[in-house]
Amino acid sequence: MSYQSVFQPGLFAGQVVVVTGGGSGIGRCIAHELAALGAHVVLIGRQVAKLHDVAGEIVAQGGRVSFHPCDIRQEEAVKTTIAAIVVAQGRIDGLVNNAGGQYITPLEAISAKGWEAVINTNLTGGFLMARECYLQAMQDKGGSIVNIVADMWGSMPSMGHSGAARAGMVSFTETAAAEWAKSGVRVNAVAPGYIASSGMDHYPPEAGPMLREMRNTVPLGRFGTESETSAAVVFLLSKAANFISGSTLRVDGARPQVRMGWPMQRPDDQALQREAIKPFDGFHLSQAPKVLQS
């Protein structure tokens, strides 16, 4: 099998797209789809073994891929990594700022060190990657940047550090779209809601019941798939979105629209199979998170 994208084959032929956090989860899925559509995908992450494995998967499907281990929180490492990519590939047409992470804890229990770690991963690292791609590759040739944020609309209780970082990234997206338009660079964001991804398995076991229950707070009555998130990213990177910049595309099944006191009615099993809302999963290597299998 191969990736079953809804987009035109060869859509990104000849293009080089960098995907941070490409060694697992949503980033892995995005990398596979971009490679299936003809892009040379450059995987970025901290764990070489994961990058190596995903690169092997893409090569086995006939895709073009390379990888560079990098801690995106380190400014000099980011500068060096982007320079190496430009030397090796000659260009960078797209950047998907997907790398991120957080942990569950109330605000009063977050230390300064913990706060900084999450801010640096989810905001500062994305800024550094975008800035260097712009300066070293896109300023003279144009390009497209997609920042992955989160469903932080109206707050993120127990993940206040991540909510602050993601909100900051939305603001950065809007500012960069305005400032870099002169160079022919578009900057957008994708905000995934509750997506059934391997990232769910990074939370402690006691979070399992809460994670499994989250789909019941979504008007569409289910979790989203990695492929549905990837499709939003691919659209924003594509020429079909050439007049879209500074926007944040939500992929969340209308979850932020839920209001206390409103008796939400979720689709039944029959309705969930209707074409307009049934899950799309084009990723041939997709696996449900372990926490959702129990």
Score class of each variant (00 low, 15 high):
residue 265 Q to T: 13
residue 20 T to P: 12
residue 97 N to W: 02
residue 55 A to H: 10
residue 14 G to M: 11
residue 43 L to K: 03
residue 162 S to Y: 15
residue 106 P to V: 05
residue 101 G to W: 10
residue 288 A to D: 10
residue 105 T to L: 11
residue 45 G to S: 06
residue 29 C to G: 11
residue 45 G to F: 04
residue 13 A to I: 03
residue 110 I to A: 10
residue 83 A to F: 12
residue 26 I to L: 13
residue 171 S to W: 14
residue 155 S to M: 08
residue 29 C to P: 15
residue 196 A to P: 03
residue 29 C to L: 08
residue 259 R to K: 06
residue 236 L to S: 02
residue 136 Q to M: 11
residue 201 D to Q: 00
residue 261 G to S: 01
residue 153 W to P: 00
residue 278 K to I: 02
residue 49 A to M: 08
residue 103 Y to T: 09
residue 244 I to K: 11
residue 199 G to A: 00
residue 126 G to A: 12
residue 249 L to A: 06
residue 76 E to W: 07
residue 1 M to D: 13
residue 197 S to Y: 10
residue 176 A to K: 12
residue 90 G to R: 04
residue 279 P to S: 08
residue 145 I to D: 04
residue 92 I to R: 09
residue 157 P to F: 13
residue 117 A to L: 14
residue 254 A to Q: 04
residue 273 Q to P: 05
residue 287 Q to S: 09
residue 179 E to I: 10
residue 18 V to D: 02
residue 90 G to I: 02
residue 197 S to E: 07
residue 124 T to D: 05
residue 152 M to S: 14
residue 68 H to P: 08
residue 50 K to H: 09
residue 14 G to P: 03
residue 75 E to Y: 13
residue 7 F to D: 01
residue 266 R to H: 08
residue 290 K to T: 02
residue 69 P to S: 04
residue 251 V to E: 03
residue 182 K to G: 08
residue 294 S to C: 13
residue 9 P to Y: 04
residue 239 K to V: 03
residue 251 V to T: 03
residue 123 L to I: 08
residue 132 E to R: 12
residue 62 G to I: 11
residue 292 L to M: 09
residue 273 Q to M: 07
residue 85 I to L: 12
residue 160 G to E: 15
residue 143 G to S: 05
residue 134 Y to H: 15
residue 228 E to D: 02
residue 129 M to E: 05
residue 274 R to A: 07
residue 149 V to W: 11
residue 289 P to W: 05
residue 46 R to I: 03
residue 122 N to D: 15
residue 52 H to R: 13
residue 265 Q to Y: 02
residue 50 K to W: 01
residue 97 N to K: 10
residue 186 R to V: 02
residue 56 G to S: 11
residue 41 V to N: 05
residue 288 A to M: 13
residue 236 L to M: 09
residue 128 L to I: 06
residue 278 K to S: 09
residue 61 Q to R: 14
residue 68 H to N: 07
residue 277 I to S: 06
residue 268 D to R: 04
residue 105 T to S: 14
residue 291 V to F: 12
residue 33 E to I: 04
residue 133 C to D: 00
residue 244 I to W: 05
residue 153 W to S: 11
residue 35 A to Y: 09
residue 293 Q to R: 15
residue 214 M to E: 07
residue 262 W to V: 14
residue 79 K to T: 15
residue 116 E to K: 09
residue 183 S to D: 08
residue 92 I to S: 02
residue 134 Y to V: 11
residue 166 R to V: 09
residue 218 V to H: 07
residue 131 R to Q: 15
residue 94 G to Q: 02
residue 130 A to E: 05
residue 17 V to H: 06
residue 114 G to E: 13
residue 89 Q to R: 12
residue 185 V to L: 00
residue 156 M to R: 12
residue 244 I to Q: 08
residue 95 L to D: 03
residue 71 D to E: 13
residue 32 H to N: 14
residue 291 V to C: 10
residue 267 P to D: 03
residue 178 A to F: 14
residue 22 G to M: 07
residue 134 Y to I: 04
residue 30 I to E: 12
residue 148 I to L: 15
residue 116 E to A: 14
residue 142 G to E: 00
